[in-house]
């Protein structure tokens, strides 16, 4: 066998093996655009707990023998990008139970669940991702106002030369964008938050929030 033919055969074999691999180790790289939002005249304390800082999607099953999807950096970047556009100031705090006079409201986000689907699993031509968050909302002092649950969804088409890493990265990026959009636009519509806001801000200046 000539060297050229061997190289061609070897390359084909590698592509075949990579395409059929049951393992996945994905480090999600994504960015959320700077939001166009009006700031609430409130000071926010944000507490990133262990779950939020360290959650990594893992799965060991027959069809997904060794899957790891790490989007820790992406979600922290997303929160750091959107929260300063929602509140007049944002402070990272070490515990939700603080009675700091400089903070009006406290958020503690955590990842409740994450699911992904490949085209061959759903028999569609889509890579899909769902990320479910729970955001605990506290008064200063640590009194829980409510726990708000929301889900971000993202999908992307299959395409030639788009492998599962690339497809899932795009789907997860879309899911994070969706989550960010829901946090920004739906936060003041959470009933408990809406009631609380009416005691904290001048409703004549922010008629849409009260």
């Amino acid at each position: 066998m000539s060297e050229k033919a061997f190289n061609l055969f070897f390359c084909g074999l590698m592509v075949f093996v990579a395409g059929c691999s049951k393992t996945l180790n994905l480090q999600v790289e994504s960015e959320v655009p700077t939001p166009l939002a009006s700031r609430l005249p409130l000071s926010l304390g944000v507490y990133y707990n262990e779950n939020f800082l360290n959650y990594v999607f893992t799965e060991k099953s027959e069809v997904r023998e060794d899957w790891t999807i790490d989007n820790r950096t992406s979600r922290i970047t997303m929160f750091n990008e959107i929260l300063p556009t929602m509140f007049s100031s944002v402070n990272k705090i070490d515990s939700p139970n603080i009675s700091d006079g400089n903070v009006d409201i406290i958020l503690e986000p955590e990842v409740l669940d994450m699911q992904v689907a490949l085209p061959e699993e759903t028999h569609t031509d889509m890579f899909e991702a769902w990320i479910k968050y729970g955001i605990k909302i506290y008064n200063p002092g640590g009194n829980l106002l409510t726990e708000w649950q929301l889900t971000g969804y993202g999908k992307t088409h299959t395409a030639m030369f788009k492998n599962k890493e690339s497809g899932l990265n795009t789907a997860i990026t879309m899911a994070l964008r969706d989550l960010g959009a829901k946090i920004i636009l739906d936060f003041s519509n959470v009933p408990e938050v809406k009631n609380w806001l009416s005691t904290k801000i001048d409703c004549s200046e922010h008629p849409g929030l009260c």
Partner: peptide, 29 residues
């Protein structure tokens, strides 16, 4: 869509002209 984030994301984009009318009441938009 990036410049208008988050108002034109798939789940938040206005579905009809009436919703667009409501959207333009927001000064930033």
């Amino acid at each position: 869509v990036d410049s208008m984030y988050p108002y034109f994301e798939t789940s938040k984009a206005p579905m009809d002209v009436q919703n667009l009318d409501r959207l333009v009441q927001i000064p930033e938009v």
